[in-house]
């Protein structure tokens, strides 16, 4: 079983677009880490700059994003050859992207509820939360990746024996 020849370029474009978006996100996460931060991120006390910039959080998210980038980009040569593996990789990457997007949406909703329970009435905190910490790029790529699942839904148009 292989990918229909006429559909390969479309799948390659999709994988490339998502791969590049995740690559951009990876770079952004790495930039957020801050190069001046110490290597042993664990060993700094509360109040240090490391804590302010949440080094570890960005580091973990950068690695996650890098992995999804790699899965998307790895699929491109396989899609070019039309193998089932390439098709599997683009679907798999889509599922991972949706999972991460869902994670951040759930986290954002939970934070809103948590803030509400704590009774935070400071508008500036809310503003900061809603427009900076809360809404992440992963949300949008996660939601966007649902389009990849539509490819799976219509797989009969893409695969041929």
């Amino acid at each position: 079983m292989e990918i229909v020849e006429q559909k390969r370029s479309r799948l390659i474009i999709i994988a490339l677009v998502f791969g590049l978006i995740y690559l951009f996100n990876t770079i952004m996460e790495f930039i957020h880490i801050g190069l001046e931060e110490p290597l042993f991120f664990l060993f700094s006390s509360p109040g240090d700059a490391v804590f302010e910039t949440a080094y570890l959080d960005h580091f973990a998210k950068a690695l996650v994003s890098l992995l999804i980038t790699a899965v998307f980009l790895y699929s491109i040569p396989q899609l070019k050859k039309g193998t089932l593996e390439g098709f599997g990789f683009i679907i798999g990457a889509g599922i991972l992207a949706i999972g991460i997007g869902f994670l951040f949406i759930a986290e954002w909703i939970a934070n809103v509820i948590d803030f509400a329970i704590q009774g935070l009435s400071d508008l500036a905190v809310w503003e900061d939360f809603v427009f900076t910490d809360g809404i992440r790029i992963e949300w949008f790529i996660g939601i966007g990746s649902i389009s990849i699942l539509l490819i799976w839904k219509n797989r009969e148009n893409y695969l041929i024996s």
Binding site: M1, L67, A70, V71, Y74, L84, E85, F87, G88, F89, I91, G92, A93, I95, W152, R155, L159, S161
Partner: peptide, 18 residues
């Protein structure tokens, strides 16, 4: 030639490097 979601996802989730 019936391809299931398991066949497809295992290409990624059981990949020797990924």
């Amino acid at each position: 030639d019936v391809v299931t979601i398991s066949d497809i996802l295992d290409k990624v989730f059981l990949h020797k490097y990924f």
